[in-house]
Design a protein around this nucleic acid. Structure first.
Lengths: 224, 224
DNA sequence: GGGGATTCTCAGGGGATTCACAGAAAGGGG
DNA sequence: CCCCTTTCTGTGAATCCCCTGAGAATCCCC
């Protein structure tokens, strides 16, 4: 996975997060470097900032396509920038996220891209299961046993993150960094709040699946 | 599928979108290359820009027909160009779309061409069904249960996109990218507006099939 | 060219969602 | 068993997202 962004702090953040997902990452700070790396290293996907110091992101894309016509590209773009121009280009199967983004979002989009790129091979599970709890990333349906559970957007993202890491303690900081936007400036106790919301919907009147590890964080695991 | 267009960004866009549909794609930038590719590679269909740098699209067509008399051709043409001349040419079973087009439209036309050409590739029936809702891509007829439903062009495209992805949440961005033209620069809330139109026609007084996932997008699924 | 259909913008309103704050509850160490 | 720390949760305000009516612009067919 090739990360192209001239803001090194952001590039580092992304590199770390994606490495944590088990992917092999390289980072480049400008278009020329990106093209060189793409040519030599042949990444499976590219994260491309559309604002680069040396050349337009779209120019980079064009030249990238000449080298690697099939590699999926995830654009990183400022909220109110040239969204219309991006929209056209991404329609072909690429995708984009607007800054500021959450890492969960980036990872989810990347998985989607890879799944689609490897269309035939990977038959896309897209359903996470922990005990009798299931979460479908496509339909965004969540159920525990027989019961449908309606979640808000943030609750869904949080639960997805937990279920991606079953039986593993996730600290509040980790959660905040992954589920909320990287420039979130609020109180850390939103995590507690949303854990509480989730418990009400998922664990209510049942054996609990979400557990607190005092001083460490939270984890989810099958009941019993 | 052979894509012939001298505008490389557009050719890339099309290649990606069609690859996503599971087709095998090659792109050429001029008439000479197109003919060479057609001769050697024998595509099942050709997307042909009528404005090419080296030769008239019509001349390309003529020579293409000598090589591959049966391959269907989808013309790409500017809005206010020589539409009448195209119209004459397409009488033979070919078809055309005017720029700017939406990807949904191109894909739909291509499927139509392949189906009519009797190519093995397109086994797909032309009728989409979700619950008691059916949409015929050929006749453009839509019915819910016993009731005929009259849709406008945009409503039809939107519903088709939804029905091709039943039980799957589609974001407003995704919808905008697929259903509207690639250079659409307007407000994102047209999607909301057209969803609202569709609901009035499809869900009116019945169990709703179109659902909103707040903060995520829309999906269609069988009622109940 | 005329008239109806269609597409799209704008803006208001309503309800859902997000989040801060603060007090209550629970855990843990001495 | 007490006290301090951490976590939980009720309340309410601000915000965001979505829906829809009205009307302007445009398209298309006759």
């Amino acid at each position: 996975m090739l990360v192209v962004d001239d803001e090194s702090s952001l590039a580092d953040l992304l590199s770390l997060a994606l490495r944590y997902e088990g992917w092999d990452i390289r980072a480049e700070g400008d278009g020329a470097g990106a093209l060189r790396c793409a040519r030599q290293w042949r990444p499976d996907a590219v994260l491309l900032d559309v604002m680069l110091p040396d050349m337009d992101g779209l120019a980079v894309l064009a030249r990238l396509r000449r080298e690697l016509p099939d590699v999926p590209v995830l654009f990183l773009t400022a909220k109110d920038s040239v969204e219309d121009r991006i929209a056209g280009l991404t329609a072909g199967g690429d995708d984009y996220v607007t800054k500021p983004f959450s890492l969960e979002e980036v990872v989810a989009r990347l998985r989607g891209l890879l799944r689609r790129a490897g269309a035939a091979a990977a038959k896309s599970a897209s359903v996470l299961t922990v005990g009798d709890l299931t979460l479908d990333e496509d339909s965004r349906e969540v159920r525990r046993g027989e019961d449908d559970i309606r979640l808000t957007a943030t609750e869904f993202e949080l639960l997805r993150y937990l279920m991606r890491n079953p039986r593993r303690v996730l600290s509040k900081t980790q959660i905040l960094d992954r589920v909320w936007s990287y420039d979130f400036g609020g109180q850390a106790n939103v995590v507690e709040l949303y854990i509480s919301y989730l418990r009400r919907k998922i664990d209510a009147g049942r054996e609990p699946m979400i557990h607190t590890r005092r001083g460490a964080g939270y984890l989810i695991k099958a009941a019993g």
